[in-house]
Design a protein around this nucleic acid. Structure first.
Lengths: 215, 215
DNA sequence: TGATATGTGTACCAGTCAGTAAATAATACG
DNA sequence: CGTATTATTTACTGACTGGTACACATATCA
């Protein structure tokens, strides 16, 4: 007997991991590919600058299909942000695992340069471009993006504080200040990228920034 | 005989500088005050995030009055940007007159900190928040803003090159790189301000950044 | 062969967008 | 006074916004 995932009692609405057959008409588009398309659009035009028509046209699907698969515009955006964090923006978390504070900062900056200078991606950073300034209708999305940027700063700060305890960051240095500085540089590079800065130019900004590193 | 400005042959549509009486119903609102209100709105919500209804409601005028006084939404935005450049964003140009390259950079950063950390203003920078990411409808405004940021960078670069010729910047330093670095820091601080950074926090970012300054 | 479950396509909803036509009100000038 | 000029008010336009109702298509399962 074939025990496919569909026979297992899964929480309501939860899709099985195995691509087991399920009743009903099969989806005619690739969800992951559609998410990728949506990410690139939101990345380029921001949350409010991207209309549902923009999205469905680019994804090649109809409006009800989008709603059935992703909820609504806001939920789709959040799924896109999540995907961004574990995809193109991966370096923001992986950099934290570097052995020393300096290497963490360098990895963070190098990762930003590689992402922002990549001509295959929209110019800029989704976390900055997504909903920096917008109407009051999107205030919640805007605040969430700000909260995520703050969270990245906090994680960085905690990593630097640990480094200080471990002795690879001078006691005189302020972990919070350093974290904020790295954030300022990477986010500033995101704006520069939107103005057309090249990878080499961004790289030199990063190099210059690291000259401010203590010790 | 009274030679008021209105008797002088002015180009069509050109308003006289003197507030001389003119035929027709007098305007019931203060144009400068309305511009100030519009600036604060665009500053906070960006170009696309601010609707004409937002504008007219805040200005306390009707839609046709706005069109009669400012042209249309895009022209109003450009007037606002101009006002911003000679008002709150004044430091971007005035800093260039400092005697040395280092003082120019310091003034630029200090000016940004003062502006971005001022609780009386929207958090952020109009040149960054105004139209960073938007729909294709506003691509022209978006490009103009990017061009203005690039222009600021170029002016800074030229100032640093002059400083190098004058001997107050090491020959090994690259004026273009330094200009781009200062831009990255100030624009990064604009994003930080949008995330809620205080004036003191921004100030420490600026202090840290200046530690990268050559010699 | 149903019966059930899911996805797609069309066509629509109310609300908002930027922009404007036309009537009226308020001023200066002669 | 009348005329010319400008501003305000109301009401509107067509296009677009995010979101959905409903008929139909396509799959599994009994």
């Amino acid at each position: 007997m074939d025990i496919s995932a569909s026979t297992i009692n899964l929480p309501k609405g939860m899709k099985s991991l195995k691509t087991s057959p399920s009743p009903g008409r099969p989806r005619a588009f690739d969800v992951e590919q559609a998410l990728e398309t949506a990410m690139n659009l939101f990345w380029k035009q921001g949350y409010e600058g991207t209309s549902l028509t923009d999205l469905t046209d680019a994804m090649g699907i109809n409006r009800p299909s989008l709603y059935a698969a992703f909820g609504n515009k806001e939920e789709l955006f959040r799924k896109v942000v999540k995907r961004y964090g574990s995809g193109p923006g991966r370096h923001a978390t992986t950099s934290l695992t570097e052995p020393t504070a300096r290497q963490v900062a360098e990895a963070m900056i190098r990762g930003s340069v590689n992402l922002l200078g990549d001509p295959d991606h929209p110019r800029g950073c989704l976390m900055v471009h997504g909903a920096l300034a917008c109407s009051e209708d999107s205030a919640e999305v805007q605040q969430d993006m700000a909260a995520m940027r703050c969270s990245a700063e906090t994680q960085l700060c905690e990593r630097f504080a640990r480094a200080q305890a471990e002795g690879d960051l001078p006691a005189a240095a302020d972990p919070a200040d350093l974290a904020r500085f790295v954030q300022a540089v990477t986010q500033g590079m995101a704006v520069l990228a939107a103005s057309g800065a090249t990878k080499e130019e961004l790289s030199r900004v990063g190099e210059l920034a690291m000259r401010a590193w203590p010790e």
